[in-house]
Design a protein around this nucleic acid. Structure first.
Length: 427
RNA sequence: GGAGAGGUGCCGGAGUGGUCGAACGGGCCUGACUCGAAAUCAGGUGUACGCGCGAGCGUACCGUGGGUUCGAAUCCCACCCUCUCCGCCA
């Protein structure tokens, strides 16, 4: 949610900033609602004041043993008008709230302006894509037998996978390795969280009210959803909290499955494990003082990079442009890993600074000693560190041998019982 | 699933219809004392929103949502959550 004070003080700047995303701020509607809200709120509070004053004097008169009948008659007339005013104010506020909850975050000034992913700006590259002496296969061909999409389709449906034997173990090894690296080298606290969350959590991080169709909602009396990312439960740790300055920054890392309905992605990445309804991810979340959030963005990008470096996977970093950046982010870095099977870089991690956007939605605050210990919104960041399934794809494709076997990267061997190579799968 | 208890401010904990935004204690902040600290003493200390240049004034908030009433933390209804015991269970 945007800062309502900014909305009132500099609406032009807000509208212009959102325009860069291609978002049309509904200015006329907002101004109409806001004007009426102001007028109705003032009137409502006047009426409430009057009621309170009179009720108090009734109480006092009664205490003095006076006759309160005339006072009662007088105040009785207030009721209907007050009730109507309160109802109107509620309705207006609900409308305004709904409007504002659907407005994306403002972009940081450094975000490149562009229309779509083609306008993202490459910041740097690491590693050299390997020269193959043979035609590299993609992960589907390499994994056949140990990576079974048909079986998953029978168990569930399209866009699921089953892994077997060393492939399942490789998947687990990657998650363990990533967690350990973030815990031991990067100073994160490991957390285990619910994979099912309520509506408030999703409103807090911004998946709702606008993107409900991307979520899996559970049947039943509760409004529960499967998490689309650990960002949701973990960032909501701070919801409705006032954090002490000394307790910041908070750095959390969690390994969870993620569930996405992938509505609107029909026909996209249908082959293989790139885009699934269920995938695992190691997610980093930081809750920081506002002044520190851009340093934290760089730091977290580095933490994700470190994973790919240790795995020896070539990658590049891009700054998402204004047209490609997510709803809640002020600035986002994507890590794209080299996939020989596709001959291109593909997203494997996304690291975002949401500034106070989520914090305002979820009332996540801290006491700022430089401002008389007043509660102010914190800044929240999240980043994949990294997507486990895609990391597995990258390992398979980058470490493939001509015979179809896969060399296990050094850092994963301790997690694989010392196995150095996954033999070629029989079709 | 059954029975019972309970949800109040940063924390503990009073408060069962009227100057209650809320006693008291702790914590925290400021000041005094001190070379300094501790202890002690005095004062202060909720959040959000609205109006106002401002001092300030006003409104809302005692799990959530309704209701009763001139007036609700207090009464009624529904729901959510927590705890204890029993049952079941990984």
């Amino acid at each position: 949610m945007l800062d309502v004070k900014l909305l009132r003080s500099d609406l032009d700047a807000v509208v212009a900033n959102l325009k860069k995303r291609g978002f049309d701020f509904p200015r006329a509607e907002y101004e109409r609602l806001e004007a009426e809200r102001k007028q109705v709120q003032v009137r409502t509070e006047q009426l409430q004041n009057e009621r309170n004053t009179r009720s108090r004097s009734i109480g006092q008169a009664k205490a003095r043993g006076e006759d309160i009948a005339p006072l009662l008659a007088e105040v009785g007339k207030l009721g209907d008008e007050l009730k109507a005013a309160e109802a109107r104010l509620d309705a207006l506020q609900a409308e305004l709230d709904d409007l504002l909850m659907r407005v994306p975050n403002l972009l940081h000034e450094s975000v490149p302006v562009g229309a779509d992913e083609n306008d993202n700006i490459e910041i740097r590259r690491w590693g050299e894509p390997r020269e193959f002496a043979f035609e590299p296969k993609d992960h589907v061909d390499l994994g056949s037998g140990l990576m079974d999409f048909d079986l998953a389709a029978r168990l569930t449906g399209a866009r699921f996978v089953t892994l077997k034997g060393p492939m399942a173990r490789l998947h687990r090894a990657l998650a363990q390795f990533m967690l350990d690296t973030h815990i031991n080298e990067h100073g994160y606290e490991e957390v285990y969280v619910p994979y099912i969350v309520n509506r408030d959590s999703l409103l807090g991080t911004g998946q709702l009210p606008k993107f409900g169709e991307d979520l899996f909602r559970l049947e039943g009396e509760h409004e529960f959803y499967l998490i689309p990312t650990a960002e949701v439960p973990v960032t909501n740790f701070a919801r409705d909290e006032i954090l002490a300055a000394e307790s910041l920054p908070r750095r959390y890392v969690a390994h969870t499955p993620c569930f996405r309905s992938e509505a609107g992605s029909y026909g996209k990445d249908t082959r293989g494990m790139i885009r699934q309804h269920q995938f695992d991810k190691v997610e980093m979340v930081q809750i920081v003082k506002p002044a520190d959030s851009y340093a934290a963005l760089e730091e977290m990008t580095g933490h994700a990079e470190r994973i790919l470096q240790l795995l020896g996977l070539p990658y590049r970093i891009v700054a998402l442009c204004s047209g490609d950046i997510g709803f809640g982010a002020a600035k986002t870095h994507d890590l794209e890993v080299w996939l020989p099977g596709q001959g291109k870089y593909r997203e494997i991690s996304s690291v975002s600074n949401c500034e106070a956007f989520q914090a305002r939605r979820m009332q996540a605050r801290w006491r700022n000693p430089e401002n008389g210990n007043r509660p102010e919104p914190v800044h929240t960041l999240n980043g994949s560190g990294v997507a486990v399934g895609r990391a597995m794809i990258a390992v398979i494709e980058n470490y493939q041998q001509e015979d179809g076997s896969i060399v296990v990267p050094e850092v994963l061997r301790p997690y694989m019982g010392g196995i150095e190579k996954i033999p070629a799968a029989k079709a």
